[in-house]
C-alpha cells in the first residue's frame, strides 16, 4: 500500500488528510488517479514529495511509500 497525504487547501478540497491506495508504479500515474478521484486538484498548483523528498519528475513509488500532495508553502 501507499499512503497519500493532502495538506493545506488540498485537505479542504479532498476532505481527507490521508488515504491508503494500492500500489501505483510512479508519481505520474498516482497524480492522474488522484485528479480523477478529486477533481479539485486538476486546476491547482501542487508539489509532490515522496518519503519527504520533493520530486519534480516522474518518480517510481516503492511499496510502503508516503506521497504528499502539497500546495505552495506559506509558513512564517
Amino acid at each position: 500500500m501507499i499512503e497519500v497525504m493532502f495538506f493545506g487547501q488540498f485537505k479542504d478540497a479532498t476532505g481527507v488528510s490521508s488515504i491508503m491506495v494500492e500500489e501505483v508504479a510512479n508519481t505520474d500515474m498516482l497524480i492522474q488517479m488522484m485528479k480523477k478521484r478529486y477533481p479539485a486538484l486538476e486546476s491547482s498548483t501542487y508539489m509532490i514529495a515522496v518519503n519527504n523528498a520533493m520530486v519534480t519528475e516522474n518518480t517510481i513509488i516503492r511499496h510502503g511509500s508516503k506521497v504528499a500532495f502539497m500546495p505552495p508553502f506559506s509558513g512564517g
Binding site: M70, G75, G76
Partner: peptide, 27 residues
C-alpha cells in the same frame, strides 16, 4: 534562514477572518 524557511518549509497558513470565513495565505 528566514528566506529559506518561507520558501522551502512545508508549512501552510490559513488566514481566519473575523466573524466567519478564511483564505489560504500566500507568501
Amino acid at each position: 534562514c528566514v528566506e529559506r524557511i518561507k520558501a522551502e518549509l512545508p508549512v501552510w497558513g490559513k488566514e481566519i477572518f473575523e466573524g466567519e470565513g478564511y483564505q489560504w495565505k500566500i507568501n
